[in-house]
Design a protein around this nucleic acid. Structure first.
Lengths: 122, 122
DNA sequence: CGGTATCCACCCAGATACTG
DNA sequence: CAGTATCTGGGTGGATACCG
């Protein structure tokens, strides 16, 4: 993250490369979508909601989303410790777009899966 | 692609895992966005429009998008050969969502970049 | 022109063990 | 409970050479 990548050097203002590529990874959308409507959530609750994410990747994903201002991390110094994650206004303004995309994906998923199979059985 | 992944086994119907994860890779969105409004385009024209993509990754991305029914590949047996890529109706129905996302990214990019810097200079 | 084929570096992501 | 540290394999993506 320190060195400027070739893409950034060539395309410093590309919104896809700078913004969308970061939430287009394996887990970010799922985390944002899970928090939507259910926030704030604790670390353990997120793990239960996304059973196939590893502890490490959940931590990494949450840190990146926090770094880009999509969520806040609130630590309550109790015993045992409690950490809660909540969406920011930025994330809330993004989520309608995400949900539109998800709705589209739900509508088209079966057709796409069929297409994939058809293209393989030549 | 032959073996069922753990994610598919656990979540056979997850639209994010099945549909969005495939267009959330490094290049798919850029290719779809480039073709939008300018289709059909030849292989070489796409390379020029996305200068930092390698020939291999452009080929792989185009094949995946074709496999999922987002674009068609038309070969004209001339000399020299001509191959044109065009968006399908499926891609055209998806693109408004993509464009909404891109518009959001453009609006919020500067603020997000600032946030990133602020979070690093502790 | 529009690809394939091959090799390879990197880093993402999972598993495991340990900690405040 | 909510992490961090370390190791490691596998897949992504780049470079290069060759082909119809």
């Amino acid at each position: 993250m320190d060195r400027m990548s070739v893409e950034d050097a060539l395309f410093p203002g590309c919104p896809i490369r700078n913004v969308l590529a970061r939430i287009g990874d394996k887990w970010s959308l799922l985390v944002l979508y899970t928090l939507d409507g259910a926030e704030p959530m604790r670390f353990g609750a997120l793990r239960k909601a996304i059973p196939d994410i590893s502890q490490k990747m959940l931590t990494v994903t949450l840190r990146t989303l926090e770094e880009d201002g999509y969520l806040t991390r609130s630590i309550y110094p109790e015993v045992p410790p409690r950490v809660e994650y909540a969406l920011t206004e930025r994330a809330k303004s993004l989520l309608p777009h995400i949900n539109g995309l998800i709705a589209w994906a739900i509508e088209n998923m079966d057709a796409i899966k069929g297409e994939r199979k058809a293209s393989r059985e030549v």
